[in-house]
């Protein structure tokens, strides 16, 4: 299980990286390698050139920019997991991160790599989908930003421009008000690719009325999806309301069927996890001070 031969460059700037990516048709970005390396080893992926972006300073780091938190693409997941900025301003992402892989894979795997790969069970992608984060690519001289909804188009298929390099993910900061989040998933083993995952964020006003409701489902269909739970807005989001709104929202959810989990199971599990995530988000929001 050895990769087919390839060349390798490790540029120190984004410009160099983009030039290298443009120089060969089958050039590919290598970041943490936690997904790409197995594919190389099994020769399922056969790039002729790997462009290692893990030492490009401008692609590493997490920072506040106005109403957003910018996570640069080559930021290691373990670093993001320890980030106080993320914990404070993007709590849903903070809840998603411990579910990504194992400690040793988080020590190399990057936030951008997880999103760029387009796996339908990727937790960071689900959080990005729910929060409508911006997925920003540099393609030659151009910069293109995608919404997750348009970026993920199939299992490990994305709108990423050929020869482009993911530079950052722009997460909106949590809104003002009483905000709560919930993230739940289920897999055969705790750290496996999930069969179903749900991420929720609710905002309540001071008198306990829900003013904004977001829910996303991952791992069930070909891509992570944001589903409409606006039915909770204007009410207290009690258990019954959550149950009804989730049932309605997931009515037409597409689900894949495979050896490990049937489609019917994935749908049922998604609903249960969605309710759990929403209940947790509600309880957390109502416990928080405005």
């Amino acid at each position: 299980m050895k990769p087919a031969p390839f060349s390798y460059v490790r540029p120190s700037s984004l410009d160099e990286a983009c030039a290298a990516l443009a120089s060969e048709e089958d050039a590919r970005v290598l970041a943490g390698g936690q997904t790409l390396m197995p594919m190389l080893a099994m020769r399922l992926s056969r790039p002729t050139l790997l462009v290692d972006i893990t030492r490009i300073a401008e692609l590493i780091g997490i920072e506040e920019q106005g109403s957003s938190i910018v996570v640069r693409a080559a930021t290691v997941q373990a670093y993001a997991l320890r980030s106080e900025l993320i914990a404070r301003e993007v709590p849903l992402l903070a809840k998603a991160l411990p579910n990504v892989g194992h400690p040793p894979t988080r020590n190399r795997g990057t936030v951008g790599g997880s999103v760029a790969h387009g796996d339908p069970s990727a937790e960071i992608s689900l959080a990005a989908t729910v929060l409508e984060a911006g997925i920003v690519f540099r393609d030659g001289e151009d910069e293109t930003s995608f919404l997750p909804e348009e970026f993920f188009i199939g299992p490990t298929v994305t709108m990423a421009p050929m020869g482009g390099c993911l530079t950052r993910i722009v997460f909106p900061k949590k809104p003002s008000g009483r905000v709560g989040t919930g993230f739940h998933e289920v897999a055969s083993r705790r750290s496996d690719y999930a069969f179903a995952s749900a991420a929720a964020q609710l905002v309540f006003d001071e008198d306990g009325t829900c003013s904004e409701a977001r829910l996303g489902i991952g791992s069930v269909g070909d891509v992570p999806v944001k589903v409409d739970v606006d039915g909770l807005v204007g009410g207290a989001a009690d258990d019954a309301a959550i149950r009804d709104v989730v049932a309605e929202a997931l009515r037409d959810l597409e689900a894949v069927d495979d050896l490990h989990a049937t489609a019917s199971y994935r749908r049922r599990a998604a609903a249960a996890l969605a309710e759990r995530a929403l209940r947790e988000a509600r309880d957390e929001a109502l416990e928080s001070r405005p």
Binding site: Q34, A41, A78, P104, N107
Partner: peptide, 26 residues
């Protein structure tokens, strides 16, 4: 050799990582 079993775990800059999921040149 595909990053699941952990038998190849080493420390890189003080952190446990899987040496089968990293190129030597990295």
């Amino acid at each position: 050799e595909h990053g699941v079993c952990g038998a190849c775990t080493v420390m890189v800059d003080g952190r446990a990582v899987r040496s089968c999921l990293m190129l030597a040149v990295q």
